[in-house]
Design a protein around this nucleic acid. Structure first.
Length: 424
DNA sequence: TCTGGGGTCCTAGGACCC
DNA sequence: TCTGGGGTCCTAGGACCC
């Protein structure tokens, strides 16, 4: 059996751990720049606040119902995620961390039936006790069914956080209650197509023939169809390393106009990408630099910069990546009055750093560079992010994010640790 | 005025080969 | 007038996920 462990309203729950008075109050967490709502507590969901809704559209509503609003605090969420995952991993021989708040656990050959359920309910209890984060568990023979089960575990209180689909009768019942749009792997486009053919629930979908599904939704849809019928065919084997790494941000307010500001941002994105490459012991062969204006603004001129550069020798060197990124941006920069709202850097064609294909015409001493990078990483690890940086990364930060409602770094910063005052 | 960030996988179509 | 058949590789863009 496969178990999907899913943290309930994860970002909101993280905030609540350190401010328990919020447990009875609706909470939302905003995206970077305080742009959109990206996490909602159950109370906030009940108020009709939608996932991804722009903050300014619901500001009045949030004030009216005294909703607690937070800017996203990824340092906190990342650390809380590590805690939950490390606890979960003690319960199963194999864990696949699927996202910041979800993991698949393989329970093959462990318990079955009621015994498995009891074991799972204990996990829910222990994770809550150990981290303060409420989780739900979906148990079934395939990942897609486990995802479905976890939805029910969350939806109905009586399950106590654990829902198991372990026979055909339960499967039929569950799938008949599951809207096709809520199936993992079926998005907006696919469900629109399926609805057109009268498929409303996951069960309807499973009653279609394999060739029909293949024809309408291609191989990915067919895989989902097989999974829903109980045939396991989605592997989320933990990848040895990422295939692409992207660092990008939206700029606050109406955006950036000056090359110097965008340049500083892009330099920082490139530096961050190179750091992530080194962290997973890889190098990249290609880098893409992009910058564009706001697609929502019909009143201003639009521009779209998008340029890819291929390196003769794969690299993860900060100086090299930053230099290429900045030069590319300068080359593509148009002397217009464009307001750039978002920019980013993507590195791809990634391979392990211990098997780099050299070049006859290489002019860089790679051994020296690697040693330098290692030294810089060590210093920055000890003294804080970007203590040593490439000059063009700058200090102006005109591109910096808006985060007016951010909470403290309770678990990762000594100055932010909660003080407990005991009163007589 | 204000609208997130970071990924993976698949497909169609072009370029190229013999 | 009439212009093959079979293959690989790469890339951009779309769909999907959280």
């Amino acid at each position: 059996m496969i178990v999907l462990a899913d943290c309930n309203n994860f970002f909101c729950s993280c905030e609540r751990v350190f401010q328990p008075q919020l447990r009875t109050i609706p909470v939302v967490v905003l995206s970077n720049n305080d742009g959109c709502v990206i996490a909602r507590s159950n109370e906030s969901k009940a108020l009709g606040i939608k996932m991804g809704q722009p903050f300014y559209q619901v500001k009045d509503l949030l004030e009216k119902y005294r909703v607690a609003v937070f800017s996203s605090n990824y340092t906190l969420y990342g650390d809380m995620s590590r805690r939950v995952m490390s606890l979960l991993s003690t319960y199963a021989p194999k864990i696949d961390i699927y996202s910041i708040d979800e993991a698949f656990l393989d329970f093959a050959g462990m318990y079955v039936g009621e015994e498995l359920c009891a074991y799972a309910r204990n996990m829910v209890k222990e994770v809550s006790k150990g981290t303060g984060i409420p989780i739900s568990l979906g148990i079934a023979s395939t990942k897609t069914l486990a995802k479905a089960a976890s939805k029910f575990a969350k939806k109905y209180k009586a399950y106590n956080g654990v829902c198991m689909i372990d026979n055909d009768e339960k499967r039929e019942k569950a799938l008949k209650l599951l809207d096709i749009f809520d199936v993992w792997g079926i998005g907006r486009q696919a469900s629109k197509k399926l609805q057109y053919y009268g498929v409303r629930t996951a069960w309807d979908f499973t009653q279609k023939t394999q060739s029909w599904v293949r024809n309408i939704l291609t191989i990915t849809g067919e895989r989902t169809w097989r999974e829903l019928r109980g045939e396991s065919c989605i592997e989320t084997e933990e990848l040895p390393h990422k295939k692409s790494i992207c660092t990008s941000r939206s700029f606050p307010d109406s955006g950036l106009k000056e090359l110097a500001d965008v340049e500083e941002a892009v330099a920082n994105f490139a530096a961050e990408c190179s750091r992530k490459l080194r962290q997973q012991h890889t190098v990249c062969q290609s880098i893409t630099i992009f910058a564009y204006t706001s697609r929502f603004r019909t009143d201003v001129a639009q521009d779209y910069i998008h340029q890819t550069i291929t390196f003769p020798v794969a690299t993860n060197n900060t100086q090299e990546l930053v230099s290429v990124a900045v030069q590319t941006l300068r080359r593509e920069w148009k002397r217009g009055e464009y307001l750039y709202k978002k920019a980013g850097v993507i590195v791809w064609n990634i391979s392990p750093d211990d098997a780099i294909q050299g070049s006859l015409f290489d002019t860089i001493d790679r051994t020296k560079q690697t040693a330098l990078s290692r030294a810089i990483d060590e210093i920055n690890k000890k003294n804080g992010h970007n203590t040593i940086r490439v000059a063009v990364q700058g200090y102006n930060k005109n591109w910096h994010l808006k985060s007016e409602h951010i909470s403290k770094q309770y678990t990762t910063n000594l100055n932010h640790i909660i003080e407990v005052v005991v009163k007589e």
